[in-house]
Design a protein around this nucleic acid. Sequence first.
DNA 1: GTCTATATTAAGATAGAC
DNA 2: GTCTATCTTAATATAGAC
Lengths: 220, 220
Amino acid sequence: MKTRDKILLTSLMLFNEEGEPNVSTVDISNEMDISPGNLYYHFKGKKFIIVELYKQFEQELVEILQAPINKEINMKDGWFYLYVVFEHLYKFRFFYNNLSDILQRHPDIRKSFKRLIKLKSNTSKTLLVFLIEQQILNIKQEEMPEVTENIIIILTHWINHASFRDIADKEVMIIHRGVFQIMSLIAPYFNDDYRYVYQQARHFYETLLAESSSEAKSFR
Amino acid sequence: MKTRDKILLTSLMLFNEEGEPNVSTVDISNEMDISPGNLYYHFKGKKFIIVELYKQFEQELVEILQAPINKEINMKDGWFYLYVVFEHLYKFRFFYNNLSDILQRHPDIRKSFKRLIKLKSNTSKTLLVFLIEQQILNIKQEEMPEVTENIIIILTHWINHASFRDIADKEVMIIHRGVFQIMSLIAPYFNDDYRYVYQQARHFYETLLAESSSEAKSFR
DNA sequence: GTCTATATTAAGATAGAC
DNA sequence: GTCTATCTTAATATAGAC
C-alpha cells in the first residue's frame, strides 16, 4: 500500500477515534511509524489531508445518492437504502462530529457540503413521493418540506448525537437505531395496511438491543 | 461591571460569533482592551471560562425545565414554553456548535450534559402526556420513546443545523423555524379538532419568512 | 521517498512592577 | 486589579542528507 493512501487511512481512523481537533500531523506519523517530514512530503499539512478525505467522502456519497432508484420501490428497498447511507456516514463520522468547525475553517468544503445536503434532500423527497404514489405512505403535499427536513436532520446529526446518548456502544446498534429513528419520523404517515412494517422494525430493533445488552454492558 | 463578568460576557459573544476553537485568550483580552495577564488573573485559562459559562448555561436551563408545568397546559402554553427553551439554547449556541469537541475535552461537562438531556427528555415526556390526557394529542404509549428522542434531537441540533442550511439569517427566524420544526414532529398526532393549530403555526411561520426575505436577502 | 534536525508560529501561561 | 515583559509548549513546517 502506498504511503499516501496509508496516511489517508490512518488519519481517517485517528480522526474518527480521537476527534479531528485532537489529532496532529505528528500523531499521524507516529501511528504509522514514519517521520513527520515524510508526511509533509505527501501532504502539505493536516488541512490538505482533511480536504482529500472530504473529496473521498463526497464522491462516495454522491454515487450512493445518485444511484438509480426504482419507481416501484418498496419499504424493504427503502430500508436497505437507508442502511447504505448510514454506513457511509459512520465511516466518515469524524466529519459530522466537528461539522461547524470544519465548515468554518474550509469554505470550499462548506459550499460543497451544502450542495450535498440538497442532494440528500432531493433523494429523500423522490423516495417519499414514490412511496406515496404506491399508497404506502400518506403525506400531504404541503407537509413534505418539514418531513424532509426532519429526515435530513436525523441523517446529519444522528451519529454525533448517538455518541453522547447511552444508546449503543457498537457500530451496528448506532446504525440500526438511526435507521429506526428515521422510520419513526414517517411512521405516522403509513397507510393502515403498512403499519406492520413499523411494528416489525421496532421489534427487530428491540430484539437486537436486548441481545447486545445481555452480552456486555460497556457503555462509554 | 466587574472585569470577571465582562470576560464571561465577551467570551460568550466571541465564542458564539467566531466559534469557540477560533477564539484565544488573547483575542478575548484584545476585544476587551485589557492585557492577557489581567485575564489570567481572573481565569486560569480558556478552559475555566468555558466551564464557568457552562455552569451559567446549565443553571438557567434547569430553572426553565423545572418550572412547574400546569396539568391543564394547552397548545399555546406549550408553544410559548418551546420559545423560551430555544431562546436559551440560542444564547449559548457556541456550545452546541462544538458539542463533541467540548464534551471530549471536559469530562465533567459531559456528565452534566447527559443529565441535562435526560431532564429535557423527561420534561418533553411530561408535556406530551399532559397533552395526550387532554386529548389534544394521540400518541400510543409504545411510540413515546421515539417521538421524545426526535424532539430531543431537534432541540439539541437545530441551531447548529440552521447555520449551514439557508434557512434564515436572523435570530428570530432561526428560533421560529426551530419551534415549527418541533411542531411538525407532533403534527401527525394531533386529534382532528386541533389540527388547525399546526396549520396556524405553518401560516405564521410562512408569513414571517415572506416578510423577512422581501426586506433583505442577506443569506450567509 | 524517507529520514534527522531544526525553524517558525501561535496559543497558553507566569513573574514582577505599578 | 492591572500592566509589561517573558517563558513554555505543542503544532506546523522546511532544509538538506541519505
